[in-house]
Each structure stands twice: as structure tokens, then as C-alpha cells.
């Protein structure tokens, strides 16, 4: 399957899609890495025995 000809302004079209791709990948990577770091820090604190009141009893505690 060949990509159709993008004409004389192909550079602008490809640059626009590159900006979109880089921005989307950037925000996805940032959110995923942020989530992993937060999970690790939470686990470290809980491993030291620090817990919210009632967090080990019922699953519907407010953060």
C-alpha cells in the first residue's frame, strides 16, 4: 500500500503529523511514568507501615 503523493507541501503535512505524534507520545509517556513513580512511592510508605485510617478494612475510603 503506497502513501499517496502529498504534493509540493509534503514537508508541512508531515511536520504537522510529526508534531501531533510527538505531543501524544510525550503526554502518554509522562502520564505512565508519573503513575509508576507514584505507585512506587506509595508502596514504599505502606511498606514502612504508614497507612490511612481504615485503608486495610474497607475499600471505599476517601483519599
Amino acid at each position: 500500500m503506497m502513501l499517496p503523493s502529498l504534493g509540493p507541501h509534503a514537508g508541512f503535512i508531515l511536520a504537522a503529523y510529526a508534531v501531533f505524534l510527538v505531543a501524544v507520545i510525550g503526554v502518554v509517556v509522562w502520564i505512565v511514568l508519573d503513575g509508576r513513580q507514584l505507585s512506587r512511592q506509595l508502596a514504599e510508605l505502606e511498606a514502612r507501615g504508614i497507612r490511612r485510617r481504615g485503608s486495610d478494612k474497607k475499600p471505599d475510603a476517601v483519599p
Binding site: 503513575g35 507514584l38 505507585s39 504508614i50 497507612r51 490511612r52 483519599p63
Partner: peptide, 18 residues
């Protein structure tokens, strides 16, 4: 996903205050 992270961030803050 970002809301999930923010909830974790607030729990982390609470645990650090404790």
C-alpha cells in the same frame, strides 16, 4: 489515567503528613 495519578498523589501527600 491522569485522574488516577492525581488520586494517588493525594494519598501520597496524606501518608507523608501522617
Amino acid at each position: 489515567l491522569a485522574m488516577k495519578n492525581e488520586i494517588k498523589r493525594r494519598r501520597l501527600r496524606t501518608l507523608r503528613l501522617i
